[in-house]
Computed example of a mutant assay.
Amino acid sequence: MDVLINVFVALHIIGIASLLGGFLTQMKAIGEGTARFTPAMLHGALTMLVTGIALVGLNQADDQTVNNIKIGVKLAILIVILGLVYVKRDEEKVDKGMFAAVGALTTANIFIATLWT
């Protein structure tokens, strides 16, 4: 079971890397007002959602304790990120504030995952 959990953790990290990488590669475009949500950002967020749900289920099946409040907060933030990215995915330019919000929420989700014990 540990190997399977570790595989899903790795996939979860790949998802967050895709989402945050899509944001970071467009830092210059944010300043120019030409930033847009890329398909990699949407797919990364969806990967995070699916693997996160799987990780909760696998950890509970393995009789490990799961902090449901932490998972709920992370899920709420991810749903906001997914909503923003999904709705604006086809637009040529995205508002600076909205694009920055996705980056800030993604970073917040990383810090919640690593610092909240």
Rank of each mutant, 00 (worst) to 15 (best):
K28C: 02
G31T: 09
A76C: 03
I71W: 13
T106F: 05
N68H: 14
I112E: 00
V94W: 04
I71N: 11
L115G: 06
A104S: 12
A101H: 03
K28N: 13
L19A: 04
G103R: 10
D95W: 11
A76V: 13
T107R: 04
M48V: 15
V94C: 08
L42V: 13
G97E: 08
P39Y: 01
T114D: 10
G72P: 02
L84N: 02
A54P: 02
T38L: 15
L84A: 04
N68G: 06
L11G: 13
E92C: 00
K88G: 00
T25L: 11
D90G: 10
I69A: 14
F37D: 01
F8V: 02
Q64V: 06
G103P: 13
W116L: 03
G103Q: 06
T47S: 08
K74P: 01
G52D: 02
H12M: 10
I81K: 10
L82I: 14
I71Q: 09
L58K: 02
T47M: 10
I79C: 06
G15D: 07
A40V: 09
V3Q: 12
D62G: 06
G21P: 11
V80L: 11
D62N: 15
V56H: 01
A61M: 06
L11P: 09
A76R: 03
S18F: 04
I16Y: 15
T25P: 00
K93N: 15
G31F: 02
G103H: 09
A45G: 13
A17E: 08
A113R: 04
L105Q: 05
E32M: 12
V66A: 03
T34Q: 12
N6Q: 14
V50P: 02
L19N: 09
A17V: 11
Q64G: 00
F23C: 00
A113H: 08
Y86T: 15
M1P: 09
D90S: 12
E91R: 13
L46C: 04
I13Y: 11
V102M: 05
A104D: 01
I13M: 15
T34P: 01
L84D: 03
V7S: 07
A40E: 10
V7C: 07
L78C: 07
L11I: 14
V50Y: 00
L24N: 01
Q64E: 09
L58Y: 01
A76H: 03
K28I: 10
A76Y: 07
M48F: 08
V9C: 03
L46W: 14
V66K: 08
I81D: 09
F23D: 00
I14D: 05
P39N: 01
L20W: 14
M98G: 10
D2R: 12
P39G: 03
V56M: 11
T25D: 05
I5Y: 00
R89K: 15
L105E: 10
N67D: 14
T47D: 01
G44W: 09
K74A: 06
G22W: 05
K88D: 08
L19W: 10
I30A: 00
I5R: 01
A17K: 03
